[in-house]
Design a protein around this nucleic acid. Structure first.
Length: 582
RNA sequence: CGGGGUGUAGCGCAGUCUGGUAGCGCACCUGCUUUGGGAGCAGGGUGUCGGAGGUUCAAAUCCUCUCACCCCGACCA
């Protein structure tokens, strides 16, 4: 592509509404433009990147035997009512009406549609297994879209849905998808970590997230420094503490603590460490209040609370609910004499000499011994994992905290959708039963953003070659100089003929402008030639992520550069090939 | 949904407090010079001041309503 004819509107200044690198550089580099909050146009450069990612995904999916299809984006409400998600999905669903007033939504995901297809067409176990996938735009009316394509409302996603006659078969498909995802992200040149995720109350049994490691990631992860265990903090188990976290002396005693509504204030007022306090949080579990106890310096893990209480809806109690449950104003809840069910973090088992709220205004207890003074229904790991916590899977491994961007998610669904939608097959014995399902998503547009978060510097993007908009950018530094122009033109022809994707900056711009734009756009291999180099019979070659350029003879430059490109392509394919296809 | 903030030229912003001819930088157009890291000089303004209503002789500026966008929060009793 010739820059003189290309639509690549680059910007010198940082757009006012962008804060993260991927958003800034996608806008500045002319990859995307915003149309509304969380809604973007993909300009030619951005679209090329998306298509590259799609193609990698497509090849790896097809290699597993999955088949691509396309589904509607406007979906009828009745389908969503069958699974109950018309109501459950809440404000995330963009609802629309047709001219007759019939209700539709813009598809945020397509389980309902694909199950509808499957239940109509599939009758026998002989038709299974089947894996259907789509790569298309979806819309979720996010609470807060942000950071460009990292969390947008309209986005492009690959979603695969598999159908099986048995749970065992679903499990082996899960393993195939897991491997395919590793290959896909390796081919995209991403550094990622697979983490255990929350299979949730869905009744699913397995779920993993593929997280691209980046400072700007929205998800907090913990990873064991010794073994392979990694998990979303919300999902992370924590190894058993060596000894009770709170140990102290003293008898139960009520003390006045006027106005101390926070852990910090109580600790300061009584002059004790925060870890000597018992934090009492009141939650509404399916509408009924429960108390959750953690050490004063810890945070509650709501996913864990949900699991231990078996609640399907869990939210922090409102101020009034706290008052009616504890009989005390907001800020003085404690386990002693509390009438509602109490769940405590494992770390508090055997706690003595602790400080806790007294369930009355301006008072706390000191010398609390949980076993003696309160009736705890159950001890379990209820706190959020932190850096340095013991690993639950291995001996003396500890957690390291990192941030990630979720780019893929694999899910063993069980019969969550097939059951309410009555998607059944007959088995060998002629018995009807509901199909087992799995679903497997990849955020295509998010992959592009994540790649930039991981591969950029102060000047712009440094795309991994497999997903770069072009493989080589060719910069003739003086278009006015005939020898330079002719050398560049013939090199452009040679490379293009060799199957290399070249962005040829044939604009009549000054060298500085060309270098700046090239760095911004982030094409991995830069080939520059100017009066000086042509006279010396040389070209200048520089990888985007390297500091220094090298030179190569102008004679035979086309073949030399093409060879570099082929080698670079091969690197990623080889890395992917290390993961075998089960 | 709660809190904070911003809407003025294609982009980034000043002007608003204290009402009085709409500005700056970049970009863009013309010309000349320039050409290895976003060139210099000269000339050119391309604008429903987010929208509607109101106050006033006069509104970007004051008042009311409204729309859009951004940031933080929506778990630490």
């Amino acid at each position: 592509m010739r820059c003189s004819r290309a639509f690549i509107p680059t910007l010198k200044e940082v757009p006012a509404d962008a804060q993260v690198a991927s958003h800034i550089y996608m806008v500045r580099g002319g990859f995307i433009r915003r149309l509304a909050a969380g809604v973007y146009s993909l300009l030619p450069l951005g679209w090329r990147v998306i298509r590259k990612i799609e193609q990698i995904v497509r090849e790896e999916m097809d290699a597993t035997g999955a088949q691509e299809l396309h589904m509607p984006s406007v979906l009828p409400a009745e389908l969503w009512r069958e699974t109950g998600r018309w109501d459950e999905y809440g404000p995330l669903l963009l609802r629309i009406e047709d001219r007759k007033g019939a209700a539709f939504c813009f598809g945020p995901t397509h389980e309902e549609v694909v199950v509808d297809i499957a239940r109509r067409e599939i009758r026998s176990y002989r038709d299974l297994p089947l894996n259907l996938y789509q790569i298309q735009g979806k819309f979720r009316d996010e609470l807060r879209p942000r950071a460009g394509l990292l969390r947008s409302r309209e986005f492009i996603m690959k979603d695969a849905y598999s159908f099986h006659a048995s749970a065992e078969d679903a499990s082996s498909e899960y393993a195939r998808m897991y491997a395919a995802y590793q290959r896909i992200f390796r081919r995209c040149g991403l550094e990622f970590r697979v983490v255990e995720a929350d299979p949730g109350a869905i009744g699913g049994n397995e779920s993993h997230e593929f997280q691209v490691l980046a400072e700007s990631g929205e998800d907090a992860l913990v990873a064991c420094q010794r073994c392979a265990y990694a998990a979303n903090v919300e999902q992370a188990e924590v190894g058993a503490p060596a000894e009770p976290g709170v140990r102290g002396d003293g008898d139960l005693e009520k003390v006045k603590t006027p106005g101390t509504k926070t852990i910090e204030a109580v600790a300061g007022f009584l002059n004790v460490a925060q870890e000597r306090l018992i934090k009492t949080m009141i939650y509404m579990a399916d509408g009924a209040p429960v108390a959750v106890l953690v050490r004063g310096d810890r945070a509650v893990n709501e996913v864990a609370v949900k699991k231990v209480t078996g609640a399907s809806e869990l939210e922090l109690a409102q101020q009034e609910q706290v008052e009616s449950a504890t009989g005390a104003p907001y800020g003085f809840a404690g386990p002693v004499g509390l009438a509602i069910p109490i769940y405590a973090d494992a770390e508090l088992e055997g706690a003595t000499g602790a400080v806790a709220g007294a369930n009355e205004a301006d008072a706390h207890y000191t010398g609390v011994s949980l076993g003696r003074d309160a009736s705890v229904r159950r001890y379990a790991t209820l706190r959020l994992a932190e850096s340095g916590d013991p690993c639950p899977r291995c001996e003396d491994g500890t957690f390291e905290l990192m941030r990630g961007i979720e780019v893929g998610h694999v899910f063993n669904l069980g019969t969550k959708y097939s059951k309410p939608m009555a998607a059944a097959i007959s088995d060998e014995a002629g018995q009807e039963h509901v199909m087992e399902m799995g679903c497997y998503g990849i955020g295509i547009t998010r992959v592009a953003s994540a790649a930039i978060e991981q591969n950029h510097d102060d000047d712009g993007i440094a795309w991994p070659m497999p997903i770069a908009p072009y493989e080589v950018t060719l910069l003739p530094l003086q278009m006015g100089d005939e020898s330079v122009r002719e050398a560049a033109e013939s090199l452009y022809r040679e490379l293009t003929d060799a199957g290399v994707e070249v962005l040829f900056d044939d604009r009549d711009e000054r060298p500085g402008a060309k270098f700046k734009d090239a760095d911004l756009i982030g094409v991995p291999l830069r080939v520059a030639l100017g009066k000086r180099s042509v006279k010396a019979g040389e070209i200048e070659i520089k990888w985007r992520w390297e500091r220094e350029a090298t030179t190569a003879p102008l004679a035979g430059a086309g073949e030399a550069v093409a060879a570099l490109v082929r080698a670079e392509r091969r690197r990623y394919v080889e890395r992917a090939a290390e993961v075998s296809r089960p």
